[in-house]
Design a protein around this nucleic acid. Structure first.
Length: 379
DNA sequence: TCTGGGGTCCTAGGACCC
DNA sequence: TCTGGGGTCCTAGGACCC
């Protein structure tokens, strides 16, 4: 989808159409913390981009429309789009909230040539949501992804097998999946700036210097990618984190925040019937150095109290000699209730705190998320 | 200039077991 | 007095993606 969050805001607020819309943190007149989550094409003319600090965005375009993300709404539209995709093939692999891979190999016999299917999908998305999408049609995932990015917005790029080498030759190596700022710098030092240049390197030399990443990049630079489109995969972790408005070393505030975050993680675990065996606590100090500590348990947990107990224990092992900018709690090594034989005994013992958790969820569902709150959150 | 929040995957060292 | 090789699990950090 094109400028997904910003497009939804323009759709829901017609008065925003044609204006620079910036979705992200509160700019607070240039003092805000956080970054741009998404921005409209009008905003991009001012040099605004995703992940730009919101304070920079404010300097570049103070007259812009600044809005907080409304994730619930974006998820709703995302569902509509994914539903459209599933009318064309069962093999839909969501890559993020606003993009997916579709394997339409088997759809051609039923629905006609691939490029006609692509056009039909774009039209169906526009009818279902009122928004535009960009499509890349290619022999594999990597090429389709690059092709889809090439002519945004409202683009359709069809890449035939025979044209792959020419298509890739002059693209910068940063287009390769797995090449971020660090790897790009290393590759530049090695003398590679374009995908074509990388493709002329020997496989052995790339593997020697970059390990398994080298093998991966060797394949991609030759347009090869045999990864399948996988419609359902198992989630590995659930986490949440928050950056404070001001760095803090207030232990009470930090401990209260740990409990809040733990409750939030627990709520999301319960929603999908997950239990976790690992808890990770993350701290970012005022100098932006980031550290994690994790603990694996010999049992599965699900409630906010259980998660918070482990997180507090981990917190006590951190030095508090600097102020803290960010704190995060995450649950990992997830097990889905029914699939795990151990769960039978857990259900049988029916942990009263788990029951309490479900009751809290039900009350919040019925009366709103602010209807029930821990006493410590009232401070 | 100041750097969010949600994730995945990879690497490397150490403990531990046989 | 000096200690192999194979394997698993755990932890911490880092790169990357959207």
């Amino acid at each position: 989808m094109d400028a997904f969050y910003a497009s939804i805001e323009q759709l829901d607020h017609p008065e925003y159409k044609g204006r620079p819309v910036i979705v992200g943190a509160d700019p607070k007149a240039g003092k805000g913390r956080g970054v741009v989550a998404a921005c409209s094409y009008e905003a991009r003319k001012f040099g605004i981009r995703s992940a730009l600090p919101i304070s920079r965005a404010w300097k570049l375009c103070p007259q812009g429309v600044y809005v907080r993300p409304r994730m619930n709404r974006y998820v709703e539209v995302s569902q509509q789009v994914m539903d459209v995709f599933r009318r064309y093939t069962d093999l839909v692999e969501p890559l993020s909230i606003d993009e997916a891979f579709l394997d339409i190999t088997g759809s051609v016999a039923l629905l006609g040539p691939a490029d006609e299917i692509a056009r039909s999908i774009k039209k169906a998305i526009r009818e279902a949501t009122g928004m535009t999408a960009s499509v890349g049609l290619a022999p594999n995932k990597f090429l389709a992804k690059i092709a889809s990015d090439l002519k945004k917005p409202d683009g359709l790029v069809v890449l035939q097998e025979a044209d792959v080498d020419q298509f890739l030759r002059d693209l910068p190596i940063s287009r390769l999946w797995g090449v971020g700022p660090k790897t790009e710098a290393r590759l530049h030092e090695m003398g590679f700036r374009t995908i074509g240049q990388l493709a002329s390197a020997s496989r052995e030399s790339l593997v020697r210097t970059l390990g398994s990443l080298g093998e991966h990049l060797y394949q991609l630079s030759h347009g090869k990618d045999d990864r399948q489109v996988v419609p359902d995969w198992e989630r590995k972790s659930v986490g949440t984190e928050t950056t404070f408005d001001e760095d803090t070393d207030d232990r009470d505030l930090l401990l209260r925040t740990i409990l809040e975050l733990s409750d939030h993680v627990a709520e999301r675990l319960r929603k999908d019937e997950y239990r976790a065996r690992k808890v990770t606590l993350k701290l970012r100090y005022s100098n932006f150095s980031t550290h994690t500590k994790q603990h694996s348990l010999d049992r599965l947990i699900q409630t906010g109290d259980e998660i918070a107990a482990v997180a507090r224990q981990l917190f006590s092992q951190f030095p508090l000699n600097r102020k803290i900018r960010l704190i995060g709690v995450s649950a990992g090594d997830l097990h889905r209730g029914r699939e795990d034989p151990e769960q039978l005994t857990l259900f049988a013992t029916s942990n009263p705190k788990e029951k309490l958790g479900h009751a809290v969820d039900a009350i919040k569902e019925k009366f709103g998320i602010d209807s029930l709150r821990r006493g410590s959150q009232l401070l």
